[in-house]
Amino acid sequence: MAVRAVDRRGWRYRGNVAVRVLAATVGAYGVASCLAMAVARLGAGGRIDAVIAGTLCAYLAVPAVAIWAFVARGPWRAWGGVVVLAALFGGLAWMIGPPAR
């Protein structure tokens, strides 16, 4: 969609793609990391059980966010989604705080 909407030549297009590539790599990994932390702290069961649940979920976030980064209507909108998700998961993890013990 958006990728095709712009002209495929020129720096404008390249900048558009570069910003999205960053969202799809650094951004996706960031969201995945925050999700891993949120689930690890939310999770029931022992400390390590929740860590495993969080880690397994986190990997699934990477392709999902990477795809979002390229289907979003614009490159900054793509980053907007990344920031919102990271803030949501990161904020959740931060509010819950480290487990006791």
Binding site: A32, S33, C34, A36, M37, A38, V39, A40, R41, G46, R47, I48, A50, V51, I52, G54, T55, L56, A58, Y59, A93, P98, P99
Partner: peptide, 28 residues
């Protein structure tokens, strides 16, 4: 990916164990 989890996705461990990697491995 899961076989290399402690290297490529250590953030769950960080969230629940901080720097105490030994404790995480002991729980595992």
């Amino acid at each position: 990916l899961v076989t290399l989890a402690s290297l490529n996705m250590p953030w769950g461990i960080v969230a629940n164990y901080g720097n105490d990697l030994a404790a995480a491995f002991h729980d595992l």
